[in-house]
Design a protein around this nucleic acid. Sequence first.
DNA 1: CGAGTGGTTGAAATCCGTCAAGAATAGTGG
DNA 2: CCACTATTCTTGACGGATTTCAACCACTCG
Lengths: 256, 256
Amino acid sequence: MRSQAMQSRSETPINLAEYRWRQVGATGPRTLKSLDSVAIPMTYHRGQEICAEGYPADFWYCVISGVARQCALRADGRRQIVGLLLPGDCFGFTAGHDFDFGVEAAVDETVVAAYPRTRAELMADSNPEIARDLRKVTFEAMARMQAQLLTLGRVTVTEKVAAFLVDMARRSPPGGNDNVALPVTRYEIADYLAVSVETVSRSLTGLKQRGLIKFCGTRTLKIVDPDALEECGRESLMGRAPNGAHFSASRRRAAS
Amino acid sequence: MRSQAMQSRSETPINLAEYRWRQVGATGPRTLKSLDSVAIPMTYHRGQEICAEGYPADFWYCVISGVARQCALRADGRRQIVGLLLPGDCFGFTAGHDFDFGVEAAVDETVVAAYPRTRAELMADSNPEIARDLRKVTFEAMARMQAQLLTLGRVTVTEKVAAFLVDMARRSPPGGNDNVALPVTRYEIADYLAVSVETVSRSLTGLKQRGLIKFCGTRTLKIVDPDALEECGRESLMGRAPNGAHFSASRRRAAS
DNA sequence: CGAGTGGTTGAAATCCGTCAAGAATAGTGG
DNA sequence: CCACTATTCTTGACGGATTTCAACCACTCG
């Protein structure tokens, strides 16, 4: 919990809330600034639980720095990761009284802001600006889930992995170079894409051998051919030709 | 567009908005009542587009009666259904300026309410009750997507189909008997679960032969053993024994 | 009746999960 | 710094589940 606030003493003036964030090592982009006055900064290390499934949803959260994973435990003991939360992503929204999923820090020194739900809602009641901010972050959360639905809907594992890489590149902080840093292990990618670890590994090496990506380290890579990766259609690792398209109902209707 | 309002003339007094809904044949549950004053009722027949991907998101929507499907068209020409919208479900929320997905009516006589976005947001600004209503329906939309993420994350197709049936039973109007009416074709189920039509058909017959469900018609069935269907674990159609569990990272860590 | 849609079943190819083993990396304590 | 260990990552082999291609049946509608 070392202080990093000193380095920015001479920059543009910052308010108290901003200062608090820097104090806990939060360097990422900030969303939901309008609720800063009630935000409680929390720091977690890898694997620590931020909120637990089935427990009262008394807080909304926003990732400040680090990575968090939204997990569900299935009947067969497998874990499924239903969401990978990067700095700026908000979570903890639920229609019921309890959390639908548990969320854990995926890396050390993960900082989140916790907003007491009833206080935040009262503030939103009296300030439309805050209500709009809330809608914005919930819509962004929905967009993340929709993108994940599309990824999970892809046919082959290589397609899923390629979509994951593209998504991570898109969500990476724009400031850096074009390298993509995977903030999670292969196991977590596997649980996120609902496939086995081995197949993830094979798909990554397949994409590498096809020249679509290039590894700088085990968890750092460079996307060589973004378009080919995105359109990473039905070509399998073996280089098989794409199958004849099998159009589903609406498509067939549209053709008639 | 025949009028069905006459039949309820002698019931409890209804307001003008309620009357308009009945006039267009809307019999389902109503959500977002607080925005009724700006709602525009629209009726669509099967396959008709309610909103188009990439077009300005000038409206929010709520399904009043019928069924709508939220579609994405992939590069290989396949359709993926990322959401199945039943009466009471709201959609059209997007973080950007344009719709992320197209939505089409899945059955004839589908009635939706269209809320002009800017007008609705202005109303939410001046009335916290409306803002809370909006949050509620967006949180419910998120819950639907999360459930779908869990379904897509299941391993075997039979599991996915079973989860789909359970979900449909849960979302069915509570008033009726315990029969589940599937409002969509097998093709749409396939596109919704991201599997092939043939496997959906095979899985359904498999579940029938195992005595977990019973068909009353092609699209009407009764869930015989809800618990077995829900826990429809790893047993395949062939009756293979469950495999030894392969725990992923966090699980293994927890065991140590 | 014929055409179109929706649904089911069969057979073959293949993709993927599982099991197994090994390599690479990081972390820990001496 | 090094041994030691745990974790992460990769590769191989095998069997099975799923996709694909094909054919057939039921139903509706003009």
